[in-house]
């Protein structure tokens, strides 16, 4: 974790020479990604509660959390594309991180449809499994990206 922080700090110093559209030195898309990840994780929690206590209010929380996560993800993609087009250097390793994140968002999109079903099967079992899968993919992506970043830093 310490290595990752150092990596980022180094990157910021380097990149900030060429970019001004970066509040507090952090790309906007990364902030938006964090927001969406938090929403998707929240949806897993409310799904788990609904599974144990099927009151519709928890299902409604879930679908709004997933929707909010998807809106944040959409904004993150837009911000990311702007970053790319403006020629800014993107965090390494960008590819696994982007692929993992896009996969999570894609599953979350399917999950939004499943959660839009009426009644119990909006959540149990498919919706709940998809919510868990989204979080698992996000954690895996973060772990792989951070492992690769360390190796990259060490190897470079």
């Amino acid at each position: 974790m310490k290595h990752a922080t150092i990596t980022e700090a180094g990157f910021i110093d380097h990149a900030s020479l060429r970019s001004t559209a970066k509040p507090r030195g952090r790309p906007i898309h990364k902030m938006l990604v964090s927001f969406s990840a938090a929403y998707f994780t929240g949806a897993l929690v409310t799904d788990l509660v609904y599974w144990q206590m099927p009151d519709v209010v928890w299902e409604r929380f879930s679908i709004w959390l997933i929707t909010a996560g998807l809106i944040m993800a959409g904004l993150a993609v837009i911000a990311y594309v702007i970053d790319l087009l403006s020629g800014r250097q993107i965090d390494r390793p960008a590819l696994p991180r982007a692929v993992g994140y896009l996969l999570a968002v894609l599953i979350a999109l399917f999950n939004a449809f499943v959660h839009s079903r009426d009644g119990y099967t909006a959540v149990v079992p498919t919706g709940l499994m998809l919510s868990a899968l989204v979080v698992a993919v996000l954690i895996l992506t973060a772990w792989v990206a951070s492992a690769l970043a360390n190796r990259h830093r060490v190897g470079a």
Binding site: P96, V99, G100, L140, L148, R151
Partner: peptide
């Protein structure tokens, strides 16, 4: 590095 990234990629 390749080996490291290939496995998760396959999983994905």
């Amino acid at each position: 590095k390749n080996a490291g990234s290939a496995k998760p990629m396959r999983r994905l």
